[in-house]
């Protein structure tokens, strides 16, 4: 089983995009883009690049990217069982939580069920919700109660209570995100003990980044009080544990927060002046770590998770390139939007 997954991950790893390849895609002539994507196993994206009027599949670029990730995850979880399988399955659930948010927003704005159904991401075998039924809920209240009777009850229940008090969509979204990542850390916990440092390092990079970026956004973009900001962060056992997050949330400027970070993070974020750059710098560091895990002899689940992190990052970058091209943006602007490092080691 391990040999199968290791081999499968190694084969998949060959599909990852180097920065040069991505750079070439930015400047490639239109007629070669579909071929380039197909050659790299992205036939679903290639089909989407062809003239929309000619294609039979009406899925959006975002939906195609997620379908690609789900297809690959499906292949990777095939030989897995127990905690490892549960973790990767829950890793895909964030797309379904995103569908939940779309459904909730549609009820807040009174969008037609048919219109919102077309925007939902098809989850394939990972789907646990009856989207048809949910889309036909009469209002947010009915939708939340239906969701609460489903597989995401533990995530939705606190969100419903919070929303009923405030009727604030921000509070609803924040509660759902918080609930999902709290759940992810619970799924990761037994694997961190069993698999050890390589897997833990991937989770640490993910949760630390989420916590720091959320902290900065909630504190300085939305102006929330420190206690509420702390409440919205994910319980962490990594570089930024609860006590450190409490201290950081109490600070009153971005610079002060960055200065109070642990030394490795301070070094990583040296010279950063805004929140998107914090995200990009931390994501780049996380990708570097994921690449090291992928190339190491780490346990198979750690390598599989590292691959999925890198693949998703690649696909988001490709989405940015394709969108940029579609909007007719200058190549320089697309490259800037990518926030990728000049080049990754081969």
């Amino acid at each position: 089983m391990s040999a199968y997954l290791d081999t499968r991950v190694s084969l998949f790893a060959g599909r990852l995009w180097r920065d040069e390849a991505l750079d070439a895609l930015v400047g490639a002539p239109d007629e070669t883009v579909a071929d380039t994507l197909t050659q790299r196993g992205l036939s679903q994206l290639a089909a989407g690049f062809i003239n929309p009027a000619d294609r039979q599949d009406s899925r959006s670029l975002e939906q195609r990217i997620i379908a690609q990730i789900l297809d690959e995850t499906q292949v990777l979880i095939r030989p897995l069982c127990g905690d490892a399988r549960s973790f990767l399955t829950f890793w895909t659930a964030r797309f379904e939580i995103s569908n939940v948010k779309t459904l909730l927003r549609s009820k807040l704005t009174g969008e037609r069920p048919a219109a919102v159904l077309a925007r939902l991401t098809p989850m394939g075998i990972f789907g646990r919700l009856d989207n048809q039924d949910l889309a036909h809920a009469e209002d947010v209240g009915e939708l939340l109660r239906r969701l609460e009777a489903g597989p995401y009850a533990s995530i939705v229940r606190p969100a419903r209570r919070a929303f009923e008090q405030s009727r604030d969509p921000f509070i609803l979204d924040a509660a759902l995100d918080h609930g999902y990542y709290e759940g992810l850390t619970l799924y990761a916990h037994p694997l961190e003990n069993a698999v050890g440092a390589p897997f833990r390092s991937l989770m640490a990079n993910l949760i630390d980044r989420i916590n720091l970026v959320w902290l900065l956004r909630y504190r300085f973009n939305y102006g929330l009080p420190p206690a509420q900001v702390y409440y919205l962060l994910v319980g962490s056992r990594y570089s930024l544990p609860g006590t450190r997050l409490q201290e950081l949330a109490a600070l009153d400027s971005l610079d002060a927060v960055l200065a109070a970070l642990p030394l490795p993070l301070q070094t990583q974020l040296a010279g950063v002046t805004d929140i998107p750059s914090v995200f990009a710098r931390m994501e780049h560091a996380a990708a570097g770590q994921a690449l090291r895990v992928l190339r190491s002899r780490a346990p198979d689940i750690a390598r599989a998770f590292a691959y999925l992190i890198l693949r998703e990052r690649d696909l988001r970058a490709i989405r940015a390139v394709l969108r940029g091209r579609h909007l007719g943006l200058a190549e320089a602007d697309i490259r800037m939007a990518l926030h990728r490092a000049p080049a990754r080691a081969a």
């Binding site: 419903r160 209570r161 919070a162 509660a175 929330l224 009080p225 206690a227 409440y231």
Partner: peptide, 13 residues
């Protein structure tokens, strides 16, 4: 007043 938003977020009734 400082904790009012926090209590709402936590689903406090």
């Amino acid at each position: 007043e400082e904790v009012r938003g926090l209590l709402t977020q936590a689903g406090w009734r």
